[in-house]
């Protein structure tokens, strides 16, 4: 058995109307995904400030995923389009800073896609685990 197996810290921002409900459905259907994923509920994916993503990486998160309604299905009509644009910009900047593109992701998960939610999380955790610990943006002052 491997000692001190690497367990990534994953922050998932889920919009209240689609993806959070999708995550609930994954639970209701007892679909497994790793416990490394911790979900933060936001009203809409457009509520996710790029600063939150930066903060997560600064605090030692190994991956950040933002889930929203499918394009065209946003509860607030256009929120997920804003999220998509902002995150595209942010992720390319993070890539420049040395945070691999695979550590960040935007996914569309509807309230009916419990299975997709679980599959997405499984895939994301596996990808981040392969990359290992995030060191690039970690603020050492945050480490005790």
């Amino acid at each position: 058995m491997q000692v001190n197996e690497f367990k990534p810290k994953i922050v998932a921002f889920c919009c209240n109307w689609c993806s959070y409900a999708g995550a609930d459905l994954a639970g209701t259907n007892r679909l497994n995904y790793p416990a490394d994923v911790k979900i933060i509920r936001v009203p809409c994916s457009c509520r996710v400030n790029p600063l939150f993503v930066l903060r997560a990486f600064q605090r030692g998160a190994d991956g950040v995923i933002i889930c929203g309604c499918h394009p065209g299905d946003c509860h607030y009509t256009t929120g997920n389009y804003y999220a998509r644009r902002r995150m595209t910009l942010l992720f390319s900047m993070l890539d420049y800073l040395g945070i691999e593109k695979e550590r960040t992701r935007v996914e569309w998960v509807s309230a009916a896609e419990g299975a997709k939610f679980a599959a997405t999380m499984n895939d994301f955790v596996a990808t981040v685990t392969k990359l290992g610990e995030n060191k690039r943006l970690e603020d050492l002052r945050c480490k005790k």
């Binding site: 936001v42 509520r47 903060r55 607030y76 929120g79 804003y82 902002r86």
Partner: peptide, 27 residues
């Protein structure tokens, strides 16, 4: 929805119940 809170360049706009500070604290 909070779209405006992220757009605001001066950080004046915030969402009650899902404020910047609250979400940061969760992170």
């Amino acid at each position: 929805c909070g779209a405006c809170t992220v757009t605001c360049p001066s950080g004046a706009m915030d969402l009650k119940g899902f404020s910047n500070k609250q979400i940061m604290a969760e992170v």
